[in-house]
């Protein structure tokens, strides 16, 4: 199988840090439902390099999970459609490559872990079988080899007594251990990119931290690019290099993590920051953002955030703001009054 896609990376060595891996340009994703067209993602662009961690942040329905699916090429179709844009992995346009190669890239080059590890693991196969399947299908390993590899991986993601538990089923593991199984499965073939869709949301706080640490450690080892998808600003603060803030299917702010956390530009980012308890422990009262995220069937006119925005003025409900640079800020933001608000 590797022979047919030799241009990718037959040796499967770890990429050099900083090597560009993924280039997403101007991608839109639509879902054609009976109720109308849902524009899940609109005009999305970003890059990811080896060793880099990109955090895509947004509330549910902001289009962040669909973005992940689009990259993996698993947007359910129908009803999903990608009418425009390109997703390039190294020198390959993922929307153009034949199915066979797409399958090779999935799992082998780009892997993904999901929010709920219980439902994301097949209940009727042992974890060892599910991890080992990667080796059996992609590498043609025998059952016994695959099992040994699975044990190795389980040890690597620090599942205790891996050898004894390799034959256990997903429901016999705790939530954190299950997510480790997912990670082990995703990392089995040492992918260059790992997409983690809310990897810790369903877990206890202490376990969350452990999982994030684990991902971080694994990234150090392999130089993989990591896309962290989350609604939780706090989780990614310590690990993200770049932050992509999404609202109603669009990127509303993009910047390196440090300046973003220091002082974001978009009013939505402000709102999010204020709704999160900071570990530094300031005495500020938590302020939730008023209102709820819009239905993607009926996105508000102009700036989609305007109904919830405390600073909204006339242009906000007439004109869609585009990502732009503003003075005194290193990132890009889509807000008509970014300068004034940040001011």
């Amino acid at each position: 199988m590797a022979g047919t896609v030799s241009t990718i990376d037959p040796r499967n060595v770890h990429p050099e840090p900083g090597e560009p891996l993924l280039d997403v340009e101007d991608v839109s994703v639509e879902f054609h439902t009976d109720a109308g067209v849902v524009k899940a993602v609109t005009d999305l662009s970003f890059n990811l390099a080896a060793g880099e961690t990109l955090a895509i942040i947004g509330e549910s329905g902001s289009g962040k999970s669909v973005t992940a699916q689009a990259i993996m090429g698993i947007v359910p179709s129908p009803p999903g459609k990608i009418p425009k844009g390109s997703i390039r992995y190294r020198d390959r346009d993922l929307m153009e490559v034949p199915d066979k190669e797409k399958r090779f890239i999935r799992g082998q080059e780009i892997a993904m872990i999901f929010q709920d590890p219980l439902t994301s693991l097949n209940p009727v196969y042992s974890v060892g079988w599910q991890i080992g399947e990667m080796f059996r299908i992609h590498r043609g390993a025998s059952r016994a080899e695959a099992r040994e590899k699975a044990i190795e991986l389980m040890e690597r993601v620090r599942i205790p007594e891996a050898r004894r538990r390799v034959g256990d089923y997903p429901h016999q593991f705790s939530g954190g251990m299950r997510q480790r199984v997912m990670i082990a499965m995703a990392l089995a073939l040492e992918p260059k990119i790992l997409i983690a869709d809310e990897p810790s949301t369903a877990l206890d706080v202490t376990v969350q931290a452990q999982i994030m640490e684990l991902l971080d450690a694994l990234q150090q080892e392999t130089n993989m690019g990591l896309i962290l998808i989350t609604h939780d600003l706090g989780v990614v603060a310590s690990v993200a290099d770049v932050v992509l803030l999404m609202y109603a299917g669009r990127v509303v702010e993009s910047n390196e993590a440090y300046p973003f956390y220091e002082k974001p530009a978009h009013p939505y980012a402000h709102g999010l920051m204020n709704s999160v308890a900071k570990l530094s422990g300031s005495e500020k009262r938590l302020e939730p953002i008023v209102g709820s995220p819009p239905s993607l069937l009926r996105v508000p006119s102009g700036c989609a955030f305007h109904p919830r925005c405390p600073y909204a003025l006339d242009p906000c409900w007439e004109e869609i703001p585009h990502l732009r640079e503003i003075d005194g800020y290193s990132g890009v933001v889509a807000c008509h009054f970014a300068e004034e608000i940040r001011g």
Partner: peptide, 9 residues
């Protein structure tokens, strides 16, 4: 439960 790993088929 090795049996199930032999496949439902």
């Amino acid at each position: 439960m090795q049996s199930t790993t032999r496949g439902w088929l």
